[in-house]
Design a protein around this nucleic acid. Structure first.
Length: 196
DNA sequence: CTTTAGAAACATG
DNA sequence: CATGTTTCTAAAG
């Protein structure tokens, strides 16, 4: 998967090259409605919402202050199957490979990309995530960065839990986090016996 | 309008 | 209560 990243330095370099064209749309997913946004460089935003999309929309504007937003569900619709059914034959889903366009600080980008390596059914703690990027004392900072994940589900922030085994937080509702995790249970390798 | 400094906020341990 | 990073606010330049 090709990922284009944009950190604060790039932002400076790029300077004011004018507003970035961006299409967005609201679409149903297996886990509720989602707001999805796309630039010419790829999928840049995916966020669940419940009844009202206004909060989700303002979050999108906040993440991309100088984007020129235009509602265009036809442009974003194909992304839904691409994201939520990644195991189906590619030919049915993707004329082009799924690309991501991520914007964040270096730290955030590091966390998000590390998160992409956590497979379905797998869990990792905020602490271990911190360890895995070589910053053993940054667990809380990690929590913060994880919470700002711009592409829900695809970047599986729902697979991050507390060290003590409790579920931890989730931006769009603990209930949704539980639902997401439950849907992945079949993927887990469970030994034949006595879990508990 | 841009920069700076300091405080406050956090999906933790 | 310490932790690291980001965001918010106020004040200058």
């Amino acid at each position: 998967m090709l990922i284009t990243t944009e950190n604060s330095k790039d932002r400076q370099q790029h300077g004011r090259s004018g507003p970035i064209p961006m299409s967005y749309g609201k679409h149903p997913t297996p886990f509720g409605e989602a707001l999805v946004a796309l630039t010419h460089l790829g999928l840049c935003h995916l966020d669940f919402f419940d009844d009202d999309s206004t909060t989700a929309l303002s979050q999108l504007r906040k993440n991309w202050p100088h984007a020129n937003l235009r509602e265009d569900p036809d442009a974003t619709a194909p992304l839904i199957p691409a994201v939520f059914t990644p195991h189906l034959p590619l030919s049915l889903l993707q004329p082009m490979p799924l690309r991501l366009h991520l914007r964040g600080t270096d730290f955030q980008l590091k966390i998000w990309q590390r998160l992409l390596q956590v497979p379905p059914g797998n869990l990792i703690s905020y602490q271990d995530l911190a360890l895995s990027i070589g910053q053993p004392t940054a667990a809380r900072a990690v929590g913060r960065a994880v919470g700002q994940n711009p592409i829900c589900y695809l970047i599986p922030c729902h697979r991050v839990v507390r060290s003590d085994g409790s579920i931890g937080g989730y931006r769009s509702g603990i209930a949704r986090k539980e639902k997401l995790l439950a849907s992945e249970i079949p993927h887990r390798k469970s030994g034949s016996g006595t879990p508990v």
